[in-house]
């Protein structure tokens, strides 16, 4: 039950009720952040591998990209309150809306990624495939990072106040997961870039998370405690373990697969942690009121 009404304590506002509304997104959206990240970073890796002449790596990365984006679409549609109206996403083009921007990016990226993967797998239309891979490769980083802007562009302190770090976290996490996927799917001799990317991605992911927590200060709570905090620690462990494993013993295929899986798990859990933290932050009136009060007091 709620506390008796009269209170001098105004830090928690009105009967401790949240000031903000919690997001209405379901966990499939966190899953999409992951699959979108895999798709985005994989397409870039694939295109780079293509340019570098590493066809096997390119093939697995492009395939991962296509798979990732193929899963992403339905995930997004399923979360809509009116799924039949998903096409309304292209009704307008709004630079003020990361989701609108994302929708347009995705609508260009998805066919490109599919085409590139198709070409890479079947060997048909090689020139078109290459152009498509190029397009997807260029759009890939946008696909991997716009979702960070999407969550940051809300009123929720644990998301919004992390808007400088979240894109890096998401990009790094996408890189790590794409590298992990490639690591698992690519024969050891061709997976070198993936191993290197895994280490870089993982390191950056861990660093970005730390930087984000520092930035958030008094509203970082959800990342440290509760369910989101637990997820964050699990993600950190997976990512670190995956990177270390990949670095130390990545030349053994089963270990590479394991390292890839750990990296992907780390990335997935990171997104869930961020996702969860938003809900917890929104539910905490003090997180909304405290910083605003300080800001007002500061003038």
């Amino acid at each position: 039950m709620r506390p008796a009404p009269v209170t001098d304590e105004t830090a928690t506002g009105y009967y401790g009720n949240p000031v903000l509304k919690a997001p209405v997104w379901k966990p499939v959206i966190a899953l999409y952040f992951f699959t979108g990240g895999v798709a985005g970073a994989s397409s870039t890796l694939g295109f780079a591998a293509l340019l570098a002449g590493n066809r096997r790596l390119a093939r697995s990365a492009l395939l991962a990209s296509a798979a990732g984006i193929a899963v992403s679409g339905p995930l997004l549609v399923v979360d809509l309150g009116r799924p039949a109206r998903f096409l309304n996403m292209l009704r307008v083009a709004k630079p003020t809306s990361p989701m609108s921007v994302g929708s347009w990016i995705l609508s260009a990226f998805a066919p490109a990624s599919m085409l590139a993967a198709g070409s890479a797998v079947t060997g048909r239309l090689p020139r078109t495939g290459r152009v498509a891979a190029g397009a997807a490769g260029v759009l890939g980083p946008a696909v991997a990072t716009y979702t960070a802007v999407l969550v940051a562009d809300t009123a929720i302190p644990a998301w919004h106040d992390a808007h400088r770090e979240l894109p890096y976290l998401f990009a790094a996490s996408a890189a790590a997961s794409a590298a992990g996927t490639a690591l698992a799917l690519t024969p050891v001799p061709d997976a070198g870039p993936a191993r290197r990317l895994a280490v870089m991605g993982a390191a950056l992911e861990l660093a970005a998370f730390r930087a984000m927590e520092r930035r958030l200060g008094e509203v970082a709570g959800p990342y440290k405690e509760g369910r989101a905090g637990t997820l964050a620690r699990a993600a950190e462990a997976c990512t670190a373990a995956g990177a270390a494993l990949g670095l130390v013993a990545g030349r053994r295929r089963p270990v590479a697969v394991a390292a890839g899986a750990l990296l992907c798990a780390g990335s997935l859990i990171t997104r869930h942690s961020v996702f969860r933290a938003g809900f917890e932050s929104a539910a905490d009136p003090a997180a909304t009121i405290g910083p605003q009060r300080s800001r007002r007091a500061a003038g």
Binding site: M1, R2, P3, A4, P5, V6
Partner: peptide, 14 residues
């Protein structure tokens, strides 16, 4: 009143 609630063990919302 809070005083009566305290005296009789009544809880807000109970």
């Amino acid at each position: 009143s809070p005083a009566l609630a305290a005296e009789r063990g009544l809880v807000n919302g109970g």
